[in-house]
Nucleic acid binder design. Structure first.
Length: 642
RNA sequence: GCUGCCGUAGCUCAGGGGUAGAGCACUCCCUUGGUAAGGGAGAGGUCGGAGGUUCAAUUCCUCCCGGCAGCACCA
């Protein structure tokens, strides 16, 4: 007797094992038709799988959320068949489901061309229309190996060897074509429907290792319906519109040029925004007891050797040699410099914790392929700080850092923050005993914050474990910005010490921390998060006063003077253009507030106000309008103090 | 760094072995207009760089530089 329970709590008994399909049919014909898979004890399985034990089941319909990954996975198989049919001799490798779609990696000497995607897609639609049944078979290892090697599918044979002993080797057939696969799949290719599209071609290393051969990856997206596909493609277009590289140019914030790959030319407005971030952070850090320093851009090789950076990263450092053959490196990190500040002059336990901060400009020779607008650059500014403290102080200091980070993100409108704990990586400095201590201390500190955190094994810095702060932006993307790292190694390597109550030298612990991380990158994130529509306090160009006729030019300039006197970032547009033209231009430039002044406003000493994103206008007295903007433009931390 | 694609005016892009094109932006003139493009004229280019093939290269080939997508990397 087999006892099957359903999600609604109902249960049914069967005398003999039966398949999911039979179970569905036993309930209703239409259910059997609509079901595409079954969950057995929460695990997604083929409808053809036999139910042989007491289990909780859930039939999965094509429209169900759970079916989406099947649609995508099936789509990957169909794509692989289409590719092998169109391009004989191409080897298949792996084709997993990813967020919003799928990909399949192929091995083929000839590169695929962008126009091939259309042909492949057409072939896929043909295969889907043919509605081939997916059937599962279990093969022996030997016959599977012989089959794929015989077909010239060396990668598949290699994948076979990776399947753990005792696990079945499953083969899924669709018509004439078959693939070794973990499954599950829907009953037939026709269930995929038409809501899919091949998106892009890219190279990808076999098994994600850059020492291996490069395969060709084809990415696709797939959805339950054409409408869902359309919505997704529309979302992609919208995301493209907020691309900070595009907005940076349109809003005249910054530029890049060939002579400086990966380094930013900040324009006046972009720099204003950048300075707003620094000013804000400086106030927050001052309030939190940090002392700001500035340390050299270039330092002798020996210091980087001592810190361990040379050994780990010298290939990624900008190195310079002087006439006297001394080798200097542009700093890739601020920590060694801060240790020098700490070491200069004897420190007492009374000086701890000492929180040294710097808006440190660091340079890293990033691989050319990694560069990406402001998000990945070769020269950037960190809101870096190092807290020199005793082991006993770690928890309290970590909690303070945690609170500060969360408070700061909130001020920028990022309420959703994920925290990740990373422990020792393979490449590291320091003994295991020291790492044991550092990891335990940081983990305990993390727990003391009361925040939940995810575990991210092996991803720590080479000198210590870390807590990373990941924020979620307006369109759901995640950005790792803040970090808090416990370091027992660098103080040792660079011989930092303080005099404790016993009159003897002791090692301090260093907590490395950053909150924005890279100011450049954070600026890019803000641009994309707001799609260029900055809140007033961050906007580098807050108000433009437009004259409606040249008669109003003098008044416009007078208004401008008052705005500036009130500390607002403002300009006047007295050009000989129509108001429509000016409104359009400043709206496109994303100026948050447009004042329009004409005869009426001159007479009444008022301004007509139009806010970005609204077609409505309202008129207000000059003084009142400016006063209201001053309030709105006050940074959130200062507003709290008023 | 790797694979693929790309590089033409400030921007967005068309073109293509035989003296380089459009729209917007820019300059000047007309227009004084009440909330997302008023009209006209003008100026603007070593077609990313260096070699090569050719009577002739912006166009074809090679190398280099830079960008884009993904992979790898990210102290």
């Amino acid at each position: 007797m087999i006892n099957i329970t359903f999600p609604d709590g109902a249960s049914r008994q069967f005398d003999n094992p039966l398949s999911g399909r039979e179970l569905a049919a036993s309930i209703s014909k239409s259910l059997a038709k609509k079901a595409v898979a079954i969950k057995l004890g929460g695990e997604l399985c083929d409808l053809s799988d036999m139910i042989e034990r007491d289990v909780a089941v859930e039939l999965v319909m094509r429209e169900d959320e759970a079916a989406l990954e099947l649609i995508r996975h099936d789509c990957a198989h169909v794509m692989a068949e289409a590719v092998q049919e169109l391009f004989p001799g191409t080897q298949v490798t792996i084709g997993p489901v990813i967020e919003n779609g799928f990909y399949y990696d192929f091995a083929r000497d000839e590169p695929f061309r962008p126009e091939d995607l259309e042909k492949i897609e057409a072939k896929m639609r043909f295969i889907i229309k043919r509605n081939d049944k997916f059937t599962k078979e279990v093969w022996s290892r030997d016959e599977t190996r012989v089959y794929f090697l015989d077909k010239g599918e060396d990668y598949k044979a290699e994948l076979l060897d990776a399947i753990p002993d005792g696990e079945d080797v499953k083969i899924y057939r669709q018509g004439e074509w078959l693939d070794m696969c973990r499954g599950p799949h829907m009953p037939s290719t026709g269930k995929i429907g038409s809501g899919f599209k091949l998106l892009k071609l890219a190279g990808a290393y076999w098994r994600g290792d850059s020492n291996n051969a490069m395969l060709q990856r084809i990415y696709g997206t797939a959805w339950a319906s054409d409408d869902d596909l359309k919505a997704y493609l529309h979302m992609l277009e919208e995301a493209e519109k907020r691309d900070h590289r595009k907005l940076g140019r349109e809003m005249d914030l910054f530029h890049f040029q060939d002579e400086g790959p990966g380094v930013v030319f900040w324009h006046p407005k972009g720099w204003k925004l950048f300075q707003s971030l620094i000013n804000y952070m400086r106030r927050r850090q001052d309030d939190a007891g940090y002392v700001e320093v500035n340390t050299p851009q270039i330092l002798d090789r020996s210091l980087w050797e001592a810190s361990g950076h040379w050994d780990k990263y010298h290939e990624n450092m900008f190195i310079t040699q002087t006439e006297d053959h001394r080798v200097f490196a542009l700093k890739p990190m601020n920590c060694p410099g801060h240790v020098q500040v700490f070491k200069n002059g004897l420190k007492s336990y009374r000086d701890l914790p000492m929180k040294i901060s710097e808006f440190g400009i660091v340079h890293r020779y990033e691989p050319s392929g990694a560069l990406h607008g402001l998000f990945r650059v070769r020269g950037f500014t960190q809101d870096d700080a190092h807290i020199f403290c005793t082991e006993d102080q770690i928890t309290a200091e970590a909690v303070k850092v945690n609170d500060l980070i969360l408070s700061i993100y909130k001020d920028f409108g990022f309420d959703e923050v994920i925290i990740k704990f990373s422990d020792r990586p393979e490449k590291r400095v320091g003994s295991d005993a020291v790492w044991d201590k550092a990891e335990a201390a940081l983990r305990q500190a993390g727990e003391a914050t009361g925040q939940k955190f995810e575990y991210n094994p092996g991803d720590g810095a080479f000198y210590g474990p870390k807590l990373d702060y990941v924020l979620r932006d307006a369109i759901g993307r995640e950005w790792q910005c803040g970090t808090l790292q416990a370091d027992f190694n660098l103080p040792e390597r660079l011989d930092a010490f303080y005099i404790d109550t016993d009159g003897a030298k002791h090692r301090p612990v260093m907590l490395h921390r950053a909150m924005f991380g890279s100011l450049e990158r954070f600026t890019g994130i803000l641009i994309e998060n707001h799609a260029g529509h900055f809140p007033l306090w961050l906007s580098p160009h807050q108000v433009v006063v437009t004259s409606i006729t040249s008669e109003a030019n003098d008044y416009a300039n007078e208004v401008l003077g008052l705005l500036k006197k009130a500390g607002l970032q403002a300009s006047a547009d007295t050009r000989n253009e129509k108001i429509n033209y000016k409104v359009r231009e400043h709206s496109l430039a994303k100026v948050p507030v447009i004042f329009a002044v004409g005869k009426r406003e001159i007479e009444d000493r008022t301004v007509n106000i139009r806010r970005l994103g609204s077609r409505d206008q309202n008129t207000a007295g000059l003084k009142e309008a400016i006063a209201a903007l001053v309030v709105e433009a006050t940074p959130p931390d200062l507003a709290r103090k008023i």
